[in-house]
């Protein structure tokens, strides 16, 4: 029995088996997860952020540095509403607030050249926490945010649900007319305009949709934090990691950012705590190496590997056949 044939003929069966294993793992996780629940939550957060970032920036080519702004806004929303509304409604609210924020920003900056858009989204990450700090200091006189802590297992499953919703939504959008319009903007914006695509509307809409998931992820994560403040919640790190994760995985695809996000989330939670400085140093070096040597990401590597591997396998097979001929 040869392995490549097993994959091609029983692909669906294998996939099903894999899915069942995955679901079983997820359902039984709390039994032995313990402290690892936290790691898994962070992995999911980065997967969601990376996916939503790649959905807009990966296809249209407009570099957004804003994930932290929407993510932080999600955390802040939970803090503001936690004593007034149940969590599911807070999550929806956080998504909506991020959506509105992104529409406003998009309307102003997405008419401009790409580089100004990038600068503006970058500014947003610095702008919002400063305003929030001011408002907190002047109006509410609160310093720092405390959360009504929820059981981590509940947060894990909620985050998982959000991740599944995000995957489905992005999958559907990619196949829709909107997805097609986005792709043509990424290819050649002027040509897209000549084809009758309302490019500004497409850009603003997709940018805002991607912000929904980022905001919602922040809202879900918040109750696991116990304490936060504007500087922590809006840390630019939440912008950079998902972007790098998406590029690392391959931002043109759906699965690339998921793989990248899970990986970087895992690395951060396991290495960063103990090795903060060296972790960040290594993180920087990894970014540089990825951009230099893997500009299309891990996903771009797959066809190359497949070709090489396929070539090697068929060569090996031919060699064996040759031997057999010689033997007979």
């Amino acid at each position: 029995m040869n392995i490549t044939r097993l994959f091609t003929t029983h692909r669906k069966l294998l996939l099903m088996g894999f899915l069942i294993l995955l679901i079983a793992f997820v359902l039984t996780f709390p039994l032995y997860g313990g402290a690892r629940t936290r790691v898994l939550i962070t992995m999911l957060v980065y997967a969601i952020l990376a996916m939503s970032w790649a959905m807009f920036s990966g296809t249209t080519g407009y570099m957004s540095l804003a994930p932290a702004a929407f993510f932080g806004t999600g955390i802040y929303t939970t803090y503001l509403l936690q004593n007034h509304l149940p969590l599911p409604i807070i999550i929806v609210a956080a998504g909506l607030i991020s959506f509105v924020l992104a529409v406003l920003l998009g309307l102003v900056t997405l008419r401009l050249k790409g580089i100004y858009f990038t600068i503006f989204t970058f500014g947003l990450v610095v702008f919002i926490p400063n305003v929030v700090t001011y408002v907190e200091g002047e109006v509410t006189q609160h310093h720092g945010w405390y959360f009504n802590v929820l059981d981590r297992t509940i947060i894990l499953y909620t985050m998982l649900g959000l991740a599944v919703v995000t995957v489905l939504a992005i999958y559907l959008i990619r196949r829709s007319r909107l997805g097609l319009a986005m792709q043509s903007i990424g290819g050649n914006e002027e040509a897209a305009e000549h084809m009758g695509i309302d490019t500004t509307r497409t850009k603003v809409l997709t940018f805002a949709i991607s912000a929904i998931f980022m905001g919602a992820a922040g809202a879900v994560l918040a109750p696991s934090l116990s304490y936060s403040n504007p500087t922590i919640a809006y840390s630019a790190f939440y912008s950079f990691v998902p972007i790098v994760a998406a590029v690392f995985g391959g931002m043109g695809s759906l699965q690339g950012p998921i793989v990248g996000g899970l990986l970087f989330g895992f690395l951060e939670k396991t290495l960063k705590v103990e090795w903060n400085t060296y972790f960040m140093l290594g993180f920087g070096i990894i970014i540089v190496l990825v951009i230099l040597f893997l500009p299309t990401g891990m996903v771009g590597l797959v066809p190359i590997l497949r070709d090489k591997l396929g070539g090697a396998i068929s060569k090996w097979r031919k060699g064996r056949e040759g031997e057999q001929h010689a033997n007979t």
């Binding site: 972007i243 960040m280 140093l281 920087g284 970014i287 951009i291």
Partner: peptide, 19 residues
């Protein structure tokens, strides 16, 4: 794709210099 990739590479360098 140059502007975007150059920006990301610059991020990497930023962390390297800083740390």
């Amino acid at each position: 794709a140059f502007e975007g990739n150059a920006l990301l590479a610059a991020f990497g360098v930023m962390y390297v210099i800083q740390y």
